[in-house]
Amino acid sequence: MIKIINKKIRLLLSVTLMVIVIVGLAGCNRKENQAESTSKSSVNTEVVSSGEELVIPIDEVSDQVSFYPVEVDGVDLEVIAVKASDGTIRTAFNTCQICYSSGRGYYEQSGDALICQNCGNQFATDQVELESGGCNPWPIFDEKKTVDDDNISISYDFLKESTGIFENWKVGY
């Protein structure tokens, strides 16, 4: 009887120890992933100063939305670029035209849709830059950018004009 109890206690201790190790490893991995995610976004932020431009290489743009974090005079902005199904490249600010002031009015991609993180509205990636107004990404139309064979360039002046729509962007989230 004592041998059975000792075996059960050893088994219970072994299982408990394995659970502790697994939970500890999972927690460390999650912290590493969060740190990696945070460092990627801060490392990739491009600072655009007066007289400069945000330059997006066309060969980086695909049917998956590319996010380009930009800092202009201390204000964080983000530009999105995506290749539509017709092959054209579309650009917009990653902030919702309706929800921008909420702080959560930004988009994340799910399949072929961009989803507003404030209201949940889904917006087809093929519609980026085509519509102005409503709950969709703030478009950057052709007259506000320069496109050549290799790059899309957005001027400091236009980015500076647009900082107001990013005043609460992702604040506290």
Rank of each mutant, 00 (worst) to 15 (best):
E36Y: 12
M18R: 07
D73G: 04
N94V: 06
M18I: 12
Q109Y: 13
I140G: 00
T163C: 06
L25S: 07
V48E: 12
L13V: 06
T95N: 05
V15I: 15
N29C: 05
D148V: 11
I2C: 04
T45Y: 02
I98H: 07
Q122W: 00
N151S: 10
G164D: 11
G172I: 11
E167S: 15
N168Y: 09
T146Q: 13
V171H: 12
V70D: 01
M18H: 08
Y106S: 00
G120E: 06
D86N: 15
D112L: 03
N6P: 00
A81L: 08
D59R: 15
T45R: 11
C116G: 07
D86P: 05
S155V: 08
N6R: 11
V47E: 14
I154V: 14
I165C: 03
E52I: 07
V128H: 00
I152C: 01
G134A: 07
P137W: 01
G134I: 04
V19C: 09
K31S: 08
C96N: 05
F67Y: 15
N6C: 03
P137K: 01
S153T: 13
E36R: 09
R104P: 05
I115H: 00
K144C: 11
I58S: 01
E46Y: 12
V61M: 07
V23E: 05
I58R: 12
C119T: 05
A84D: 09
A26R: 09
L12N: 07
G24L: 07
E129F: 01
G24K: 04
E161S: 08
E161N: 13
M1V: 08
D157M: 03
S62M: 05
C28T: 06
N118H: 14
I98M: 15
S155R: 04
G134C: 05
D142V: 06
V171I: 12
P137S: 05
F93C: 01
G111E: 04
V75Y: 05
K3P: 01
V21W: 14
D149Y: 04
E53A: 10
D126L: 08
T163H: 04
I2W: 12
M1S: 12
I22V: 15
V79T: 03
L11E: 15
K170W: 05
A84N: 04
R10A: 13
K3H: 10
V75I: 15
G103N: 13
K170Y: 03
I80F: 03
M18F: 10
K7S: 13
G51V: 06
E60F: 10
E32V: 09
E32W: 07
I5E: 06
